[in-house]
């Protein structure tokens, strides 16, 4: 079966064979899982920036262990605060997991989560505008200033973009 899926992905099956296989993938969860895994392997080999991966089961599991964060403030997260894309490594770090996941979970998992964690807000996905001040304060003393000389204020220039 695995051989056939692999052949299908490589486009080496005839049309009728492919049809049969698709039917089977739709009906049989195990085959469907194989199909997903093979695509995942292919994706990993091609080393794209983002890898599609169904994490909903794991997220649900982790959510059970998470304490409920009580954040009574109802208003939406400050729109001015610019969201900064977390690097993949950062988001896998335990702290980032919850926040990041809330954006990633599949639709069917979402209502369930919403019930369990009504007040959770994706704190770590937002960079507060005042963080720029820390970045600039840090920049002053970073050795990159020695190495890059002139261009050392590049980051500063781009940081100030987000402030206004």
């Amino acid at each position: 079966m695995k051989k056939e899926i692999s052949a299908l992905m490589d486009g080496e099956l005839f049309e009728d064979e492919a049809e049969n296989l698709f039917d089977q993938i739709k009906r049989d969860p195990a085959t469907h899982k194989d199909w997903e895994i093979y695509h995942l392997i292919g994706d990993v080999l091609r080393q794209p920036e983002y890898i599609h991966c169904d994490l909903s089961a794991k997220v649900r599991e982790r959510m059970q262990d998470e304490p409920t964060v009580l954040a009574p403030r109802g208003r939406a997260v400050n729109q001015k605060a610019r969201a900064i894309a977390l690097s993949a490594a950062a988001s896998l770090a335990a702290v980032g997991v919850v926040a990041w996941m809330s954006l990633q979970v599949s639709p069917e998992a979402a209502p369930q989560m919403a019930m369990q964690q009504p007040a959770l807000r994706p704190a770590s996905a937002q960079i507060q505008p005042k963080s720029n001040d820390y970045l600039m304060a840090h920049q002053e003393f970073s050795p990159s200033i020695d190495m890059n000389g002139g261009a050392s204020y590049i980051r500063t220039v781009s940081y100030s973009t987000d402030e206004k």
């Binding site: 704190a123 770590s124 507060q128 820390y134």
Partner: peptide, 12 residues
């Protein structure tokens, strides 16, 4: 709030 953010090579 507690949290991790990053921009380019800088992590906060």
């Amino acid at each position: 709030v507690d949290g991790l953010t990053s921009r380019g090579a800088v992590s906060l």
